[in-house]
Design a protein around this nucleic acid. Structure first.
Lengths: 362, 362
DNA sequence: CTGAAAGCGCTTACAG
DNA sequence: CTGAAAGCGCTTACAG
């Protein structure tokens, strides 16, 4: 019960050393499990550490070690969206970030999060800020141009998510092609729909472009008709999806038999917009999503969609980044498999009670 | 186009100084906007910085400045839950974290995220790890005992969320009392339900205890009957809520007219469990939640609940912590207001189409 | 096994 | 306005 009441003033390894009666080198060694300290030394140090509630300064360690044990993650926040709506459109991102965090933990890393507003012109500055505080960076879709990435990559390892591979960075994405092909096949062959449309996401998104391309190819291949054009341009948000439907209906346009949405958020907006106008889903129009965010199964009707391994994408992104940070391989892009999840919104029957919608009581 | 191709090897302020032909002090000054550098000096430095894509090392800055510009956030991950289920139970936490992040950004801070498994015995170690890398810490509910907090507080400022105030820390929470009172009033007076039950959350959660206490007081005050006891013990998860209903029904117990759940997740599980057994909500049994997470409005029936200002709680937690870090005030606990959100699950009529469920096209 | 000392990359008084 | 130098709190060869 030493009365070492240090009012404030940062506590350092010197204080611990003094209390324990050893050198700072010894303190550092027992704290880091280096060498083979004498049991008594170890004892005295640990006691002093507990006594003082000492926590070593991460900045000093990082500077000395050349390793911060931090990975930065940067993503875009929704812009036009209200706070409430925002919550929803970030489900996907939150899921990925969780995966990153869990994987990081296995390596003793923590995750530094930073978002950028849609129209934030300081994106580059913000990313640099994070770069300075981390050993490596994970960039979500649409954060930096290829040249921006190339430039930053000179300072720090970079992994992109659902982006495009670069010479300087590695990308982790999912198998849009197989997913979209399976979906179109289900709608056209199994349900026999002959008239479809793809309600797109951000025009610049690599994921969106891949999905759009395969949608066209696959529908064309089976001889189905499709609606396309700027009228079907969404933006990955529920509001964007609802807007497309609203405009279409106002113009008195014909609805296709099935609407394939670029992501779940869009599908959510579409379903609501259709319901409000008395169009029945899936009886009049089938609607599908992409992602399988948690809400998907609770929608009414429940949403048929493509499940991306959301958390696993995050975990993989970290793992790849980690191996780059440690200097081992991790040089090639990775494409994760997806899965078609059939629920009600495509026209399939509701799941039987034997297969509860929740993983409960099973 | 200088051919300064440094293959790897950390780029430092010395490299910039050399390229620009100035001292490192000058580089530091223009980079930080200190002093009044001559325009030419500024020019040369900025040019060199761009040329090299230089990003100053955050650890070195932190060590020198005594400020990392990082706040740590620690929370619990669901444990028994599967990955999928986890997604859902973390909606609330994700919302708060987002609020923290946005507020942090206004001050040039980034957010360091770290989760702890439910049964992780290394919780304290993990928290210390984060503490070393941050200027202050925000602890979600149920992370550390009062003594644990007191100890850690000697090293670093702490703010707790939905916890209990401590001499050493500040708490940010919401007004459980008013919320629960308004809810019970609505159910008993406006709907006239006379037989209710409270399906509780984690027994140790301060929020849960407050809600349970007010529930009992308020129902008793209007002379309604309530069911209580261990049978009504949940754990804030959908699975926990479903389990309570399953056991109750198996024992052939009577259902109350209204079930007030400790949070939305629990309500979600309850609604599914009841539906599976053919009990109609709200016709046979009314069900309510607490939080108003994004899924709430998409449930079928949509969920009547108490809206907590989720993101605002996070933002407030950061603001309070920031003022403690900067040494100004921020010493008193804060209680944020909540709001009763009436939807279908309590027995109220569906919202009119004039008030779309989504913030779309309004 | 242990201690004295150098060094990690910045910032900031202190002189000029 | 600008540069030389000290110092931030650690870790880690290098001697002993």
């Amino acid at each position: 019960m030493t009365e070492t009441k240090r009012p404030k003033g940062t506590l350092t390894i010197y204080d611990v050393a003094r209390l324990a009666g050893v050198s700072i080198a010894s303190v550092s060694r027992v704290l880091n499990g280096q060498g083979t300290p004498r049991p008594e030394t170890r004892e005295r140090v640990m006691h002093a550490v507990r006594e003082l509630s000492f926590v070593p300064d991460g900045a000093a360690r990082a500077l000395s070690n050349g390793l911060k044990e931090v990975v930065g993650v940067v993503f875009r926040r929704g812009g036009e969206a209200t706070f409430e709506d925002e919550d929803e459109s970030l489900l996907f991102i939150d899921g990925i970030n969780r995966g990153i965090e869990v994987a990081a933990q296995h390596r003793g890393f923590d995750v530094l999060i930073s978002s950028v507003g849609v129209h934030d012109s300081h994106a580059t500055a913000r990313i640099s800020g994070v770069a300075g505080k981390a050993d490596g960076i994970i960039l979500h879709d649409r954060m930096l141009s290829a040249v921006g990435i190339a430039r930053l990559a000179e300072m720090i390892p970079i992994v992109t998510l659902a982006g495009s591979p670069t010479r300087a960075s590695v990308n982790v994405g999912c198998d849009n092609d197989s997913g979209m092909r399976a979906l179109v096949n289900h709608l056209t062959v199994e349900h026999g729909y002959r008239h479809l449309a793809y309600l797109s996401g951000h025009a610049a998104s690599p994921d969106n472009r891949a999905r759009a391309r395969v949608f066209e190819a696959a529908t064309t291949a089976v001889g189905a008709e499709i609606q396309t054009g700027p009228a079907w341009q969404g933006n990955y948000s529920a509001a964007g999806g609802a807007q497309v439907i609203a405009s279409l209906l106002e113009r008195g346009g014909d609805l296709p038999r099935a609407i394939v949405c670029a992501n779940d958020q869009t599908a959510l907006g579409v379903i609501h917009a259709l319901a409000r106008r008395g169009v029945r889903v899936p009886d009049d129009v089938a609607v599908t999503g992409f992602d399988d965010v948690p809400v998907a199964r609770h929608l009414h009707p429940s949403l048929t969609t493509i499940r991306q391994p959301i958390e696993q994408m995050g975990a993989t992104a970290f793992d790849v980044l980690y191996s780059r940070i440690s200097g081992n391989g991790g040089e090639s892009d990775v494409v994760l498999p997806v899965r078609l999840v059939l629920r009600e919104s495509c026209g399939c029957p509701p799941a039987s009670p034997a297969t509860p919608a929740l993983g409960v009581g099973a």
